[in-house]
């Protein structure tokens, strides 16, 4: 953006924990007192926004909108939601339609069948009863109010809440004039703008099998990068890996991809795309090609697939 500037450039990391993962705002710009104070103030506002979204949509908090909705499951009652929640539910609906029903925000209950600290397959009946509580098509959503028809049904915004928060925090920072840096919420990254000297940030993608090393370093001056993988939470049983990304129809983990990373203008889009690609399994490549965003993916035998992604030499 700007040509080489006079004056020193400085950067700060604002680290915090939110949404059960380590988060950081990496903000850069002029190195003087006033600019650093300005960035610190903006960072606090951005962190407050992330916490606001967490508080509003976390299923772990009894006073959240999601918990409020889930508490009415099976009672026949419908909950009127505000504009922000309505837009998020509309988005979830679009994701459900665009993924042939694979991205389903009512599928969170299936996690109860899997304990990743305990390498064992779930009980068949338990899984079946949980599966009967899954199905966005049966959720009553009319644009104003939402109702869960069966007891035990739950909505879970975990599949896109973090990415949405990253976009909101980034938009807030940009509006306040912080235009160099990025927001990283547990690996979901939204870039504000390039480094002060105009060069892109080098964002690393975790190697799916070698912890501590990178699969690739991607140069980004703007937009977002998100990654889904089978290595975050998993166990291995009889040589087969069982990861935390569950197919909503079978209740079983997906197997085709070790890792999918997507670069797109919005983190909300990038995150949804890589999750859906994981869920599509062998059809994931076709899905990503059709959508058209840049991606880098590693399949179950370690083969690399990519589209429009350029890597930096390391």
């Amino acid at each position: 953006m700007l040509p080489a500037t006079q004056g020193q450039a400085g950067a700060e990391d604002f680290e915090f924990d939110a949404m059960a993962c380590p988060c950081v705002l990496h903000l850069a710009g002029d190195d003087d007192e006033a600019a650093r104070t300005h960035r610190a103030v903006a960072a606090q506002a951005a962190i407050a926004e992330v916490r606001r979204i967490e508080a509003k949509y976390s299923r772990y908090r009894a006073d959240s909108v999601v918990s409020h909705i889930n508490a009415t499951a099976g009672t026949g009652k419908r909950v009127a939601v505000d504009e922000e929640t309505a837009q998020l539910l509309n988005y979830a609906h679009r994701l459900y339609c665009d993924s042939d029903g694979l991205f389903d925000i009512s599928s969170g209950v299936l996690r109860r069948a899997w304990d990743f600290r305990n390498p064992a397959l779930p009980d068949k009946h338990h899984l079946e009863s949980l599966l009967s509580c899954v199905g966005w098509s049966s959720v009553k959503w009319d644009g104003d109010s939402v109702g869960l028809p069966r007891t035990g049904m739950e909505l879970d915004f975990g599949g896109f809440g973090k990415e949405y928060a990253a976009d909101r925090a980034a938009a807030l920072l940009i509006e306040r004039g912080v235009v160099h840096g990025y927001v990283n919420l547990g690996g979901d990254i939204r870039v504000l703008g390039p480094r002060p000297d105009g060069s892109p940030w080098r964002l690393g993608v975790q190697h799916p099998r070698n912890a501590g090393s990178l699969l690739a370093e991607l140069p980004l001056s703007g937009g977002a990068l998100a990654t889904s993988g089978d290595y975050e939470r998993y166990f291995e049983l009889d040589g087969q890996r069982y990861c935390h990304v569950l197919n909503p129809r079978t209740g079983f983990p997906v197997r085709y991809w070790q890792s999918v990373s997507v670069a797109a203008p919005l983190c909300s889009a990038a995150g949804a795309l890589c999750t859906i690609a994981m869920l599509y399994e062998s059809q994931g490549l076709e899905f990503l090609a059709r959508q058209g965003e840049a991606f880098l993916a590693v399949d179950h035998v370690g083969r690399l697939h990519r589209q429009d992604i350029t890597e930096l030499c390391t």
């Binding site: 998020l88 892109p200 980004l220 001056s221 059709r290 058209g292 965003e293």
Partner: peptide, 23 residues
């Protein structure tokens, strides 16, 4: 590595949906 949309005949329907989210 800035992301551009110029040369693809692609759907991008999911991105279009994400753009409707507030803020």
């Amino acid at each position: 590595g800035s992301v551009t949309s110029s040369s693809r005949r692609a759907d991008r329907s999911l991105l279009a949906a994400a753009l409707l989210l507030p803020g």
